[in-house]
């Protein structure tokens, strides 16, 4: 996407390509491309340590920053926050130095895909998991920064939310450099881009907003009012309105508080809606209509039956008596 002089190279590797690091001498054999975006390309590869994900960044400074972040995340106790980092090196190919790093390959379904097939209930559960991890990250003095479905994955087996891309992780007190408009507090006019836990919690709330409608929308004139109204009027979000509003207006200073209240809210609210996963939206609506039509048919039959019975009774009364 960027077209400036810091641009690294566009990488396009065939499966089977061998990559050997210049400094540490480890070798990787490319299996397939896992994904490619504005930031770079990630390949699945064989390594002496098993299957790994190898990332080539378009911008070398960005790659170095990401590696620094992954190293920091590894210091945090408990379940891993980001993918574990295996190796950082340069690959000399065609006379050029191409920097890359190898990390844990997380098997699973990207959150965006997951939300498409599973219901909103799942989004809430995954959010509760996510908030627990965010609490741990915040306690170490960092925030996630560019928190959005694309940077998250639901690992299999186990259905646990994991962090895929941690390029936006920022020290608390510094400025958020990487963000995505829909999930950004600054875009909606709810505050600055200085890293604080509230910045992440705003984005977390927006992930639920996105999951409920399965779409992003643009801000309008009065963006703050627009967003709060949207939540209030949305059938899946209105029950979570209290929690979402607090997160959006920066009332939670800790992820734990948001998690506790969200958990309580979900426990109290049973979902009255029919589950919609695995069913395309349109046909199911049609089916509902059909059902309604059939119901109307039954009603008509019933009325007709009662009417006929009435006539019969009248007939009996008039002729028999």
């Amino acid at each position: 996407m960027m077209n400036h002089s810091m641009k690294n190279q566009d990488i396009n590797l065939a499966s089977g390509t061998m990559i050997t690091g210049k400094w540490h001498g480890k070798s990787y054999q490319v299996i397939k491309c896992l994904g490619s975006g504005a930031q770079g390309t990630v390949y699945l590869a064989h390594s002496p340590a098993g299957r790994v994900a190898v990332k080539f960044s378009k911008d070398r400074s960005q790659a170095t920053t990401e590696v620094n972040v992954l190293k920091e995340l590894q210091k945090v106790q408990g379940e891993p926050l980001g993918p574990s980092l295996y190796d950082v090196d340069d690959w000399v190919a065609r006379g050029r130095n191409i920097s890359f790093y190898a990390m844990e390959y997380i098997r699973g379904l990207p959150l965006v895909e997951y939300l498409k097939v599973k219901g909103f209930d799942w989004a809430c559960i995954l959010m509760i998991q996510l908030l627990k991890d965010l609490e741990r990250l915040h306690r170490e003095g960092w925030i996630f920064g560019d928190l959005k479905p694309e940077n998250l994955i639901v690992s299999e087996p186990g259905f646990r939310i994991r962090w895929l891309d941690v390029g936006g992780v920022t020290l608390i007190g510094r400025s958020v450099k990487e963000y995505t408009e829909f999930f950004d507090r600054g875009y909606w006019g709810f505050g600055h881009r200085k890293a604080d836990p509230q910045y992440d919690l705003f984005a977390a709330a927006m992930i639920l907003v996105y999951a409920a409608g399965r779409k992003r929308f643009e801000k309008q004139q009065d963006s703050k009012k627009q967003l709060l109204e949207y939540i209030k009027n949305h059938k899946r979000l209105s029950s979570l309105q209290t929690v979402l509003n607090k997160a959006i207006t920066g009332k939670y200073t800790r992820a734990k508080d948001m998690r506790d209240e969200l958990l309580q809210q979900i426990n109290e609210t049973s979902s009255p809606q029919t589950r919609y996963y695995n069913k395309p939206v349109k046909p199911s609506r049609k089916m509902q209509q059909k059902r309604r039509r059939r119901k109307r048919g039954w009603m008509a039959m019933l009325v007709l039956g009662v009417f006929a019975a009435g006539l019969y009774i009248l007939y009996l009364k008039l002729y028999v008596m």
Partner: peptide
Amino acid sequence: MEDLPPEKRGKVMEVVD
């Protein structure tokens, strides 16, 4: 910067940031 080994490059990048 790019000629430094990855570990040192990481340190320099911290200064740049």
